[in-house]
Design a protein around this nucleic acid. Structure first.
Lengths: 136, 136
DNA sequence: TCTTGACTTGGATTCTGTCCATCGTAGGAT
DNA sequence: ATCCTACGATGGACAGAATCCAAGTCAAGA
C-alpha cells in the first residue's frame, strides 16, 4: 500500500526531495509519529532537511487530507497517515501507545438534535483511554 | 452552585488567597479557560498572583478531580470545572467556542472486545466538531 | 537552457508549560 | 494571642513544540 506519492503527484503537489522523504516516512498504516520523529527519520535519508520543512510538508499533507493530526496527550501532535479508513484511537494511559480502532455504529447518532445547539456537526473524534496489557 | 470552596476545604486543601481566587475564577459550569486566561482573571482580584501558582493550583484541582483538563485543539489546555456531571464537548471549527454536551448511550459500548486489543478501557473522550450558528 | 514562482533553510521568535531556590504564610501547637 | 514550621507562592530561568522570516535554491514549464 504505497499510493501516497502517486496521489500527491496527481494532485499537482510539487515534488521535491524533501517532500518525497517526508511522504515516504509516513507511508504506512499504523504509524503515529510526532513532527520531530518524522524529522529524525527523514534526516536518515536526507541529512540536511530542516525542521521547518518537515513542519511545512506535514501541514500541507494534513490540508490535503492525506494525513490526520492527532493530539492525544496535550504534548506534541502526532501524524497519522491512515486517513482513508475512518477510525478512532485507543491510548494507553501508562505508556502512551496508540492503536487505531474501528467502533461500531455512527458516532454522530449519539448526539441528539437538541444537544447540538444549532451547530452543523461534521466530525467526531473519539479517544478511548485505558491500560494496555503490558501496563496493566 | 458554589460548593467548590467548601469541598476543597473539607478535603484538607490548605486555603490561601491565591488558591481561593483560582477556585473562584473557575467556579461556574460553562467555562473552558486556558491557564493564561485563568491567570488574567485571577490578576484582576489579586494583582500579584504568579503564573506558576496558577499552574500549580490548576494541577492540584485536576488531581483532586474537581476540574477536568480539556485539550481540543493541540494548543493550550483548557480547564473545565464541570467535573461532576459526565459530558463531552462540541467545538466550533471556525471560532473555537466549546459547549458541553451530553450524548445518549454508553460511549464505551461502541468498541467491541476484539477492538480493544487487551486494553482495560476506562474512559472515553468524544469531541464533536462543526460550525456554530455564527460561523456557518 | 532559461526563468520564475514556489520551496527550503536555520535562526529568531512565540507560545505553553515546568523547574527551582528563596521568601512568605496558614493553621496547628503552645 | 503568639510562635513554628511545613507547605505554598514567587518570578526568572529553562524547555518543548511550533511558527515566522528573509535570503538562498530549485522544479518544472516555456
Amino acid at each position: 500500500m504505497s499510493g501516497l506519492l502517486e496521489r500527491l503527484r496527481g494532485r499537482g503537489w510539487r515534488m521535491t526531495s524533501q517532500r518525497r522523504v517526508v511522504a515516504e516516512v509516513l507511508d504506512g498504516d499504523h504509524v503515529h509519529l510526532t513532527a520531530d520523529e518524522v524529522h529524525a527519520r527523514a534526516v536518515q535519508r536526507l541529512p540536511e532537511i530542516s525542521r521547518a520543512t518537515v513542519y511545512n510538508a506535514l501541514g500541507e499533507l494534513v490540508a490535503l487530507g492525506e494525513v490526520i493530526e492527532v493530539s492525544t496527550d496535550g504534548r506534541a501532535k502526532r501524524y497519522d497517515p491512515n486517513a482513508h479508513r475512518p477510525h478512532q484511537h485507543l491510548v494507553c494511559s501508562g505508556c502512551g501507545i496508540i492503536r487505531d480502532v474501528h467502533p461500531t455504529g455512527d458516532p454522530l447518532s449519539g448526539l441528539p438534535a437538541q444537544e447540538r445547539f444549532g451547530f452543523e456537526v461534521s466530525k467526531v473524534e473519539v479517544t478511548y483511554r485505558g491500560l494496555c496489557p503490558s501496563c496493566a
